[in-house]
Write a protein that binds this DNA or RNA. Structure first.
Lengths: 338, 338
DNA sequence: TCTGGCACTCGGATGTGACGAGTGCCAGGA
DNA sequence: TCCTGGCACTCGTCACATCCGAGTGCCAGA
């Protein structure tokens, strides 16, 4: 096992490297952190840390930089989550309070996260499957054409056009609307299929086909998780990455355009608490030189969606985690209020 | 005035530079284009073109590159719009035909444009102000709380929460819904204010306040042009820009994050036909080394929104313009169908 | 008006050497 | 046993010098 001092040395290396973006040597370490020992001792410790794979030398005659494994140890054992300061918290709350609708909440959240962390922020729209139904509206646009509008408790609105197999009068439509709402308003999406199962039976035979069509469209809408949208911001921060630019930035930009990749990335994160994926821990190859800090947020006790930050492995983990946690918390509050 | 041959020389310079990304010299020019004259003659022409400000030398002993003014002349006089090939057209149509809803149409359009031009694509959501109302729905969520849902002919849905000054029964609500729809369904947004002006008069005094509140929320929604959303794609193509990377890419990424800037940019473009803004012609400073090719698209004869492409001034203008025109045309068709 | 020739310029690539940060190892001391 | 100071060594970076060649401008002649 690593001695206490060696862990301190690792911590110091991570901190310095994150700060300066340059490999750190033994002398600089002893000067900037009072470890109470000489550079030579630190050198021995560093050699040991390198043997264990926590740090590495880019070149023979250069200082050390942390490896993914080193960052992992740092995040797990050596660093806490840096809480936001009072003013920061107030700023977050004020900024989010100004939002006028769901789109705006998400947009503001992205901006905020990107600014706070100076990295790329990704925010998922509140997911449908965990939400509850607030209201279902059916509009007759043509004799055999119905528009289905679904309103969720998170303020999200989904609409679908339904082409009916047969003309559908205003009377049955109103009937269906009333029955539907009385059954599923306030219920969770997951429960809806069960609740509407026998609805067609209540209608005249000639209308049953249409009712079934409408219902199956509704269920499709509920299930359609792949429709989950997300918003991205702060891509300009990618330019701060490093000097070896195009090579690093390219795959990241590509990854950010693939919503599927991002959704998967966020999906892998645990529901509660925060998940940190460092470098090669990311399944997607293009993100092998980045770290992803993500967490869930929710309107109640439960997470309804995820948000996160993508940045270089060489990032300020405590600060980033603090920002993610704080923003997630406040977004949850805002959603719960509205 | 410039002689015919000098224009040809300019055209050749632009084409070669766009192709090779390297300053082009007199010798290379005569080899690759059969101008029928010797390099020495071309040199004289180039000197003249330089005097007029159409081309410039990055360094004393280098070839020439076109200036913004040179590109401008090229676009205005020397180049046409390169039409898409048959297969390309079919591919565009097929791809767009697969869209399931408005979001999907816009998303696909962005992807398509980005792929075709290998540049950054920007597509504005169909604008509200030019559209017509398809349906207005009012839902009572609580005694004094109404949700207003507006559905446009382009398939867009906007919802607003309205807090009423007094409780509002289902009866008057249904009444208002019916009157509203009979008056404004199918009408253009611009006409709506005039059409609903006297609506409160038809209601009982105690409901008038609520009716007015609902109406003013509706009008706000219609006017709220700044809410116009847009979608961006193909940012990874920025990495192909050049070698002097971070300096060029940074401000562009920043500009792309500022929806306001982009909306302005697209807004400046003419309604019909295509607009090309080259380098410093762009008002926004960060885009001074890029060109923007934009055009309007519409569901009918009229443009309802804009779309465009952002790329280096050194871009394939004929090809880009062809792609923009083709995509705009097909998106219009798709919107008209749905 | 065009052409071939020629001297000139200057950026980029290549090579060389000095410098210095950082290392590993070792012998001596607490 | 662990820490420390010293020392030789490595190697990347920087500054400077050199060379090469693409490209130019200009001029005299067709």
């Amino acid at each position: 096992m690593l001695s206490e001092r060696r862990l301190q040395v690792l911590r110091a290396i991570v901190q310095d490297y994150v700060g300066t973006e340059e490999p750190v040597g033994s002398k600089a370490l002893t000067e900037r952190h009072n470890l109470g020992v000489s550079p030579a001792t630190v050198r021995n410790d560093m050699a040991a840390l390198e043997d264990e794979g926590f740090i590495a030398q880019p070149h023979t005659s250069a200082g050390r930089i942390p490896t993914d494994k080193g960052y992992r140890l740092f995040v797990d054992k050596l660093a806490g989550v840096k809480p936001m300061t009072g003013p920061e918290r107030r700023a977050i709350q004020n900024f989010l309070d100004g939002a006028v609708d769901l789109d705006d909440v998400v947009a503001r959240t992205v901006r905020l996260l990107a600014q706070l962390t100076r990295q790329v922020a990704v925010v998922q729209y509140p997911s449908l499957t965990r939400s509850t139904v607030r209201h279902v509206e059916l509009l007759s646009l043509a004799p055999a054409r119905v528009m289905l509008v679904l309103i969720t408790d998170t303020g999200r609105v989904e609409q679908r056009m339904v082409d009916c197999p047969a003309p559908f009068g205003e009377g049955p439509l109103a009937d269906l609307r009333a029955r539907l709402n009385s059954r599923i308003a306030g219920r969770r999406f997951a429960d809806v299929p069960r609740l509407v199962e026998d609805l067609p039976d209540a209608f005249d035979p000639e209308d049953r086909g249409t009712v079934s069509t409408v219902l199956s469209t509704l269920l499709e809408t509920l299930v359609e998780e792949n429709e989950e949208r997300l918003m991205i911001g702060g891509t300009a921060n990618l330019t701060r990455f490093g000097h070896d630019f195009p090579l690093t930035i390219r795959p990241v930009l590509e990854a950010l355009e693939e919503q599927v990749v991002l959704l998967k990335l966020l999906g892998e994160a645990g529901d509660s608490g925060m998940t940190v994926r460092i470098g090669h821990e990311n399944a997607y190859e293009g993100l092998n030189s980045t770290s992803v800090v993500s967490g869930g947020y929710g309107s109640g006790n439960e997470a309804v969606a995820k948000l996160g930050v993508v940045g270089p492995t060489r990032m300020d983990y405590p600060g980033t985690m603090g920002a993610v946690r704080a923003v997630a918390r406040y977004v949850g509050q805002i959603l719960a209020e509205s």
